[in-house]
């Protein structure tokens, strides 16, 4: 069997490779060199590459984002990490006003090769300020690249590609993916920052999943087999630019699409995808594109309220059956686990 490592280990390996390959790369973020090492994704990097290139930061996310930009336009390649997307919001000024526009507003005179990793939290009571998925915000800004790798293999390949890219890249990583293992090559490789990936081919309906939702789509596709519905599952993995070709090719073939987002439905990325597909394929769609995502209220904390906050495979399966003109009849199996953890190995606290 080929080597399997976790999503967190894959991210760590990608950063180690980049630090090794290019002396201009450096890594900073709150907790980067601490004993937990950003949920394992930066463990050992400071020991290996020294305090000058791998360091902790003051709780000054806005200034530190500006520091990353200032160093990038003068030749460095910073990787900045936030343990939650929510924490990065205080740096939105530097990201949107500055980093995204520095190349453009000076007529291409400078480049801003920055990677900003942000972790999307979920479950175990993360609540309103530790679990937002704001990829649609970043996707709205020209000049940014926005990626959300789902598999460990993509995590490594996309992070290396992001560090080598000459633009600011927002890399959103779902906390529940961190422990998942996948076959990951030991050598360095790059995964496109512009292509979505067909995870599983199918003919009756296209399920487009964002980040962790791609896995829920895979599970739904598995359930749908029992109902003789062949679902094509696409891991969106790139939020900006939208990979129109891959999405259009699939929906052209199936004529039906369900977009499953990890963010809010209202003004979310699922709306953009739905519009892109409808504008091009209006005549050939067999049913209207349907969006599934987070409801129109913040994330509640108590498991009693948050258990049904996120779309899950049975709900996805039922909507898919409906779109195929069938009765929604999938019953969620009685789960012997709580819905606020990806599996029993995840025991919080964050």
């Amino acid at each position: 069997m080929k080597r399997q490592i976790s999503f967190a280990e894959a991210l760590c390996e990608a950063q180690a490779y980049c630090l090794e390959a290019n002396p201009n790369v450096y890594v900073m973020g709150l907790g980067v060199p601490d004993p937990k090492g950003i949920f394992g994704s930066t463990l050992g990097l400071q020991e290996r590459f020294g305090e000058k290139r791998v360091f902790d930061i003051p709780l000054s996310e806005n200034a530190i984002t500006g520091v990353a930009l200032g160093s990038a336009i003068t030749g460095m390649r910073p990787i900045l990490t936030h343990q939650r997307v929510d924490f990065a919001l205080v740096s939105i000024e530097q990201i949107v006003n500055q980093a995204a526009k520095w190349h453009y507003m000076f007529g291409g005179k400078m480049q801003a090769p920055i990677v900003i990793r942000m972790i999307v939290g979920r479950g175990w009571g993360q609540g309103p300020q530790h679990s937002q998925s704001l990829h649609a915000w970043f996707a709205h800004i020209p000049g940014l690249r926005v990626i959300m790798p789902t598999t460990a293999r993509d995590a490594k390949g996309m992070l290396i590609a992001a560090v080598e890219d000459n633009n600011p890249v927002i890399c959103l990583e779902h906390r529940w993916l961190y422990g998942l293992k996948d076959e990951v090559p030991e050598e360095d490789y790059r995964v496109s920052l512009e292509q979505s990936r067909v995870m599983q081919p199918g003919t009756d309906i296209t399920l487009i999943g964002v980040s962790y939702m791609a896995l829920e789509c895979l599970r739904a596709a598995e359930l749908l087999k029992e109902y003789r519905v062949s679902a094509e599952v696409i891991d969106l993995r790139v939020i900006r630019p939208i990979d129109k070709n891959t999405l259009l090719n699939s929906v052209q073939k199936t004529g039906r699409v369900l977009i499953v987002d990890h963010g809010h439905v209202m003004a979310g990325i699922s709306a953009e995808i739905s519009a892109v597909l409808t504008e091009s394929l209006f005549q050939s769609l067999k049913s209207p594109p349907i969006r599934l995502g987070l409801p129109d209220y913040p994330t509640p904390t108590s498991p009693a309220m948050s258990d049904h906050y996120y779309p899950e495979s049975h709900q996805i399966g039922n909507r898919a059956l409906e779109l195929c003109g069938r009765k929604p009849e999938m019953l969620p199996v009685i789960q012997n686990r709580r819905l606020d953890q990806p599996d029993s190995s995840f025991e919080g606290p964050f």
Binding site: R53, G66, V67, A68
Partner: peptide
């Protein structure tokens, strides 16, 4: 807003 960016350029100079 350009203040931290200048500080980042100083970090380049130092590194």
């Amino acid at each position: 807003s350009t203040v931290p960016i200048a500080v980042g350029a100083a970090l380049t100079s130092q590194l």
